[in-house]
């Protein structure tokens, strides 16, 4: 039971975020109106995605150092869940942008950077799918994964801040902080960052456990097949002699 305290924490934080995010008073801004509440649900997806990609890169490094296939498995599944959060971030961003900026996919450095980043990670999965040998696949994709993370972070965190961007807090565009004197946003968005990230790791953990069972089953099946083949070989040898 003690091992699961963080799951209880996730539930509590998410319950707080969703209830307070819809009910609590928010700063009054033109155009945005109530849609400012999206700031409790859209940015945390990206924070969770980045946290999981960081975890994925760390497990890739660990795989390269120790050579355990289990680390590679955790790394892939973290990237998988991260991609889900990224896709959700794109869709929610589109919905929000349509009503706030008037375009489903505004030509913004941050959105375009994210599009490139997502393609980088799609290439990661294609790369994995194209190598048959387990250890080779793990080694090549681990190297690529570390490289992809090193490109992804500048693409979405640094480059958008160097040019003009529609996103608050980027390229001379003021963040929400200046309207947030009473901490009405920070009070909810910070727990949201933690809650969404924890949920991402929770979902990933389920997939990792499932994949471990699957790989044990695969190993057993292989053993059985090779054993029955050996038996058949022995029998045919007997009949010849």
């Amino acid at each position: 039971m003690l091992k699961h305290w963080w799951k209880a924490l996730t539930v509590l934080i998410l319950a707080y975020v969703f209830i307070a995010g819809l009910m609590s008073p928010v700063p009054k801004l033109p155009i945005l109106h109530e849609a400012i509440r999206n700031t409790f649900f859209h940015p945390p997806l990206w924070i969770a995605m980045m946290a999981m990609l960081l975890g994925s890169a760390i497990f890739s490094i660990r795989y390269l150092r120790k050579g355990r296939l289990d680390d590679d498995l955790i790394s892939v599944e973290l990237a998988n869940t991260a991609l889900l959060f990224g896709v959700l971030g794109c869709i929610t961003g589109s919905v929000w942008a349509y009503f706030a900026w008037g375009d489903l996919w505004p030509n913004d450095p941050k959105t375009n950077g994210v599009a490139v980043g997502m393609l980088l990670y799609l290439a990661y999965f294609i790369l994995r799918g194209s190598v048959d040998d387990d250890t080779r696949r793990a080694r090549i994709s681990s190297v690529y994964n570390i490289f992809a993370f090193a490109v992804f972070i500048p693409l979405i965190l640094i480059l958008p801040r160097l040019t003009d961007s529609l996103h608050p807090g980027n390229g001379g565009n003021p963040g929400f902080n200046q309207y947030d004197a009473d901490n009405s946003i920070k009070r909810i968005i910070r727990p949201a960052f933690v809650g969404f990230t924890l949920l991402g790791f929770w979902i990933t953990q389920l997939r990792v456990r499932l994949r471990r069972v699957e790989s044990i089953l695969d190993d057993q099946q292989e053993l059985e097949q090779s054993a029955s083949k050996r038996l058949a070989d022995a029998k045919s040898n007997e009949s010849i002699s």
Partner: peptide
């Protein structure tokens, strides 16, 4: 525009 928030939560 609360419906925008509802839509976003629905997507998530």
């Amino acid at each position: 525009k609360i419906w925008v928030v509802v839509a976003v939560i629905g997507v998530v």
